[in-house]
Structure formats: structure tokens, C-alpha cells
Design a protein around this nucleic acid. Structure first.
Lengths: 339, 339
DNA sequence: CTGAAAGCGCTTACAG
DNA sequence: CTGAAAGCGCTTACAG
């Protein structure tokens, strides 16, 4: 049989209210009472019934995290950070994959399990802001990473993609590279993150007075190894080929490295490679990969904190734009002199 | 304001019970009443309060899925299947990562959110059965993939690892290979799955009257690309080197393929490679990877069904050993003649 | 500082 | 086939 508050109260010879006070760390309980109740709590092994608590308080302490794909290491690592950050706030995270498909994203926002979560951390690929607005009584939402198309009025947490991409490009410039290619250029205007990164790239080139060569901008279908490998092959067939490549994520870069290796092109002496995300494998591949490392912990921490704000303290505050830091991690794929 | 059953009842001019009957698809409601109530339900946009329902029924319809690492594509894909299978039973899945560490696994089983889930799908790496027994009032558990050490008394769902490994090895034998190496051999006895796969490998060799050469059995620290790559390098330094490699998962095989490519060893003509898991990338890498494809959908379906059984129908039934099917998927890494 | 009591929204015997 | 009512376990004004 389950141990209820009432059982503990009887055991300790106090009222239910008093036990509840102790359980919830209420301030005004005499030490003697607290101690006695705590003992009863321990002896009986009391565990609160979360459903009852939720029913009473109207909060579930559950938040959902909706991501395109857990397969992608970046998202898997980010999810892990979010789970930990949420734990610190006493929140449990429900992870769900949207596959970046609009229909699934819509499903998530309108609540696959309605009235079930207190808030939503959302990394949308396809959804537009209008879609979000239309849904009646959707839970508080904080956008993570991807920004909804124009006019968004929800908190948004991300790295400063423009600045980060500029930094990455600048790094290649500083190595003396002149023909700096991009793998992962935005295939369409809806690819918001890619557009921002491209903007950063352009700024760096402008500052270095290097002319933009559109031939060097390669879009991809997906952000996977295979796409990176294929794009790199295309680039190597150019005359002259690039002397550096900025890949818009590490997976693409890993694919590019593979092609370079196959073709016997030396990295970094002939072609320097830089990625974005700093996934685990980038440390272990050979050559190890120079990359932009977004502060995933900060990203998760800011997002959860913003959501908590919206959930309880200030549901109607003006939407915030929050940036987590990043750093450039130099590894073998850009270390060393030009050939 | 939230719409309650009571509001709908008032709106439709019936009692709360009747509305509840309609919501829960109770059989004995006249069509006229059902229709009228349904209309009120729709008009008011009623959504049941799940906390209240849980409090009343004692069930949350939440199950947890505890996996070592979501980063690993196999687990990510499996998780996706589990989520879908659970949906069919009206269950929501709480995914949590244990990192394969005993401490985290213990945490999960004893309930990170106690009294919160109806059941647990669990893929343990470190936990022993005794640990499970010791935990008072742990939820119904079904083991997925990994088997707890001896004496387990919980349902277990997996592919027949011995049979699958035997099939894989036999395939290499049929190609005429004689020196068949293994990457991913069990580093210790606790690596249960690896031990089973090794057993299958041995059986296939025995049947083919090929002598076991322990030099060809390479253990790994982790089941990642880098480990596969390193192991392959070791194998190529043998004299003579192997003419085929059975990798105990696809990630290892992907790493092995990379090394083979770097060293200019032809696949499959000089060395044939086979993996295990059939992760997405195996279809897209070059050469594409022959592999054992466990029926992940069946695995997830069986696991969820078994858990549902234990949760409601037959909590104390004798533990079952359930096997999902597998098939050998032939791709480029083994297709073609020997050099 | 502590107690008695109401009520969160639902399901479910129990009547009828 | 439908209704009135109890009760799941908790929190929280309200008294004292």
C-alpha cells in the first residue's frame, strides 16, 4: 500500500498540514516538529503523489523538449544539457522528435498530451510564427537555436550565429587562406540559421577584402556526413580548388575530411577545414577538427531559465533575445602552415 | 478558464457521468446522447485533466525508456520506434540517458520521479539483477537489448544475438573468407551482448571447420568509429592480415572502413566488412555496409506490449524471453569477388 | 506555529 | 441507459 501524507501524520502524531509543511520546506515549523515528522517520513518511506500535487497546484513540473532529430549528435548533446538544467529547477523533460516536419511540429505545439506540460522548449525547422500564434492556449514556449520566421514574439536562445561564423571565417583568413568555401549554404530562405552563418562569413570576407565567389558556396540537402563528402568532392573539382572550407556543422566537416583523405589532399596544408557545433567526435577524428564550440550548457541553462520565468514569474513579459557564448576550438584541421 | 467535465455537462444538459462515459467511449450511451455530448465537447474544446485522471485511476500512462546513450544512432533509432509503439497504446515515453553508468541506472530504476511512471523499459549496461531486486516497489520493468547478469526474472526482449552473429559470420564464410576477424570482442564478461555475438561467430567457424585464431579477436573500449578504426589498423599489421572483418556494430564498421580506405585496402575484394545494427548511415556510406538489421520496430513493439502486459494484465506472470527478428542486408562491403 | 476542512477534476461503484 | 455522490492525495486559505 502507498504511504500517504495522512499515514505519516498519524505516525508522527501531527496533522496532515504539518507534514505537508515539512515536505515542502515551509519555514515556520519548530525544529522539534520538523525532526519528528522527518523521522516518520523516513521510516515510512513517503513519496509524494505527483498527480495529486499537480491536480491541486495546476502544475505538472513537466516540460517538453521538441527537437528535429536526436540522431544528430549536436541535438543529443544539447538534450542532455537541457535535461540536467531542468533537473536543477525540479523539472522533468519530455523529449520528442519532430523530424523537422511541420506537421509533427504543429502536433507538438498544440500538445500531443494536452494539459500535460507546463512549458515547451522548441527547436523548430519548418514552423512559422503564425502557426504558433494560431494555436489556442498553447503552453509557454522558448525557442532554442532555430528562430521562427519574422515577427516572433517568444523568447529565443541561441548563439550569435553571425558573430560565430564571422569568427570561424576570420580564423581561416588569418591562416592566409584566400579561397574559402562554404559547405551548408542556405538552400532556401527558410534555412534561417544557415542564412545567419552565411552572413557572418560574408562579413569576414568583406573585412579581409576578399571577393565573394559564389562558386564556393555549396548548399546541402541535409546536414549529414554524406552531404559534406559530396560537396567537398564538387569543390575539389573546381579550378582552382579552395584552400579552406567552412562547414556549417561538424557532421558536414567530417564528411568533407573523408573526401579530402580519399583524394589524398593534405589537411590543413592544402585545405584547412573548420566546423561548427563541437560534437564529441570532432575531438577524436583524425585529423581532429577545428570548430566553433557553442556553450551548450549555457544555451540549455538560459533556455530553461527563460522558460521558468515565463511559466511562473512573468508570463507576459516582453520576449527576450538571449545569446549563449561560443569559442573557437583550434585543432589539427587548421593547425600548421600552408603548403 | 479551463473547460471541465462539469462545464460540458451543463452545456449539454446531462450529468458529469454521462460526459465521462462519452469521453471514455463507454458502450452504453444512446446515440442521441452521445451526439449531443460530443457537440458540447467540441464546442467547448474540452481537454481532460490528466493529473486528475491519474489521481483517480492510479495510472499516469507514462513510461520511461532508459538507454545508455542517445548519441548512438542505434539507440536514437530504437527510441523513435519505442515512442511510436507506445503511442499506439496511449502511452507517453520519458526518455532518460544512463550513460551506462551503474549509479545513473540505479537512479532511473528507483525512480528519478518516483510514483510517476507506470513502467520502465530499460537497457542496462552496468546494473546487475540483484540491484533491481533490492529496490522496493520498483515499477514493472522490461529489459530491452541488454540482459542483466544471471538470474534475471524480468521480461527480456532482444534479437537472438547468437543466431544473428552466426548468420553474419556464415555470410563471410560463404564468400570464401578464411581469416575472419572480429572487432568488438567482449573486453570482459560483463559485456553480455558482445559475448553472445562472439559465441555466434565461434559456432559459424566451427561449422565451417575454420580454426579460431585469437589474434583476430579485437576488443574495444567503446563502440565508436575511432575504436573501429584503431582496431582495423592493428589487424592490417598482422601477417597475414584478415580477409574479412565482422564488426559488432555499424559504428565500429564505419571506423574500420575508414582505415581500410586510408591504407588503400580494397573493400570487399581484399577485406570484406560486415556490421551489426543497420543504422541509417550504413546505407549511405561508401562502400555501403553489409550488416545485420535487427527488426527495431518489432523490438520496440514487443517490448512495449510486454510492459503493458506487466503493467495491467499479468503483473506476476512468469518472465518471458522474447526475440525480435533480424535479417542480413547485403551491401557493397561484401558484394563482389575475392581478390 | 499547527489543525480542520475545502476543493483541484476526474472515475466509478451504487442506485434507479 | 443516466444521475448523485464519494473519494483519489495533495495544498492552501482560514482560524486559532
Amino acid at each position: 500500500m502507498r504511504v500517504r501524507l495522512k499515514d505519516v501524520a498519524d505516525h508522527a502524531g501531527v496533522s496532515v498540514k504539518t507534514v505537508s509543511n515539512v515536505v515542502n520546506n515551509w519555514e515556520y515549523v519548530t525544529d522539534a516538529t520538523r525532526e519528528r515528522v522527518q523521522k516518520a517520513l523516513d521510516e515510512l518511506g513517503y513519496r509524494p503523489n505527483l498527480s495529486a500535487r499537480s491536480l491541486r497546484t495546476g502544475r505538472t513540473n513537466l516540460i517538453a523538449l521538441a527537437l528535429p532529430r536526436l540522431h544528430e549528435p549536436y541535438f543529443a548533446e544539447l538534450a542532455d544539457c537541457v535535461v540536467r538544467a531542468a533537473e536543477d529547477h525540479g523539472l522533468t523533460v519530455l523529449i520528442s522528435q519532430t523530424d523537422g516536419r511541420r506537421e509533427r511540429e504543429q502536433q507538438v505545439v498544440s500538445g500531443f498530451r494536452p494539459q500535460f506540460i507546463d512549458g515547451l522548449l522548441f527547436s523548430p525547422l519548418a514552423l512559422e510564427w503564425d502557426d504558433l500564434e494560431e494555436i489556442p492556449g498553447h503552453p509557454p514556449v522558448v525557442l532554442l537555436g532555430e528562430r521562427l520566421a519574422a515577427g516572433g514574439a517568444a523568447d529565443h536562445v541561441a548563439v550569435d550565429n553571425v558573430a560565430a561564423a564571422q569568427r570561424a571565417t576570420q580564423h581561416l583568413v588569418e591562416l592566409g587562406r584566400k579561397r574559402i568555401a562554404v559547405i551548408g549554404a542556405p538552400p532556401s530562405k527558410t534555412a534561417r540559421t544557415a542564412s545567419l552563418r552565411l552572413e557572418g562569413y560574408k562579413r569576414a570576407l568583406r573585412k579581409a577584402r576578399i571577393r565573394l565567389d559564389k562558386q564556393l558556396l555549396l548548399p546541402v540537402n541535409q546536414l549529414h556526413r554524406a552531404d559534406g563528402a559530396a560537396a567537398m568532392a564538387t569543390l575539389l573539382d573546381l579550378a582552382p580548388p579552395p584552400d579552406a572550407v567552412f562547414c556549417f556543422n561538424d557532421l558536414l566537416a567530417l564528411g568533407a575530411l573523408r573526401t579530402l583523405q580519399e583524394r589524398g589532399v593534405a589537411v590543413p596544408s592544402e585545405v584547412a577545414v573548420i566546423g561548427f557545433d563541437d560534437i564529441e567526435e570532432s575531438r577524436f577524428c583524425s585529423p581532429s577538427l577545428t570548430t566553433i564550440s557553442p556553450d551548450k550548457k549555457a544555451l540549455a541553462g538560459l533556455a530553461v531559465a527563460a522558460l521558468v520565468q515565463r511559466m511562473s514569474v512573468a508570463p507576459d513579459a516582453a520576449p527576450q533575445e538571449l545569446h549563449a557564448g561560443f569559442e573557437l576550438v583550434e585543432r589539427e584541421s587548421t593547425m600548421g602552415r600552408r603548403a
